[in-house]
Amino acid sequence: MLERFLTGASTYSQSIDHLIFLIAALVGFWLVVAEGFLFWLIFRFRHREGQPSQYITGEEKHLKRWITIPHMLVIACDVLIIVGAVKVWMNVKQTMPPAEQTVRVYAQQWAWSFQDAGPDGMLDTGDDIRTVGELHVKVNTTYHFELVSRDVVHSFCVPSFRLKQDAVPGRTIAGWFRATRPGTYDIQCTQMCGIGHSVMAGRVIVETPEQHARWVQAAGSPYTAQAANPASHTHASLDLSTAPGAEFAEVRP
């Protein structure tokens, strides 16, 4: 249903949509019932000719039932929501299906950069492909990502994948996704991270295997290889040589 407003492009986007719908439906139902009942009560016990509006304290047993029974029913709905949420949480965050490709995601003020494991599927080897602002992935392929921050707290969010994960400086956070639909989707930062937070955007490009192979080949061209050489930095605080993956020097033979 949410897909009508925002494309779902990962294997778990539907289960998250269903969960959101379940919560909205249950909570919405009780909102309508409770508000309807409230207004009915106001109307029912209003001031009338020869009788003032009534104040009911609700201490008698037959009156208290109007509280306790809905209360139990709401709790039953809560349990339903918790069961649904835990199921989705386990599936999306707690279990990682085996990786077919690995990519490292770097967050920094105010850009996203990526290190694709390349043809050998291993990070920090000579055939890694490093990009800024664009993450290229193959459709119907399970990716594990390692999320790191180069400075402050950020949050890696791909709305179309229904993916959101905080990046915490000093920690490497693992996650996964499997894109189901070729196309270009937005990446945004969803954790306030400084003056440029609102312009901290990137794109994930989901490609068919042929398109992806072409991209991998082009990424090995001399310009990219040269650009990917690690730098000697002037600022100790921003020194990339302390970041994971900085130790390799050459891209592709």
Partner: peptide, 22 residues
């Protein structure tokens, strides 16, 4: 245009690039 501030190792450039886009 992305001619500057889009190199993987140019951290300061990457600070500036999105700001210029604003």
């Amino acid at each position: 245009s992305g001619a500057r501030g889009t190199n993987f190792d140019d951290l300061e450039g990457m600070h500036m690039q999105p700001m210029a886009l604003s």
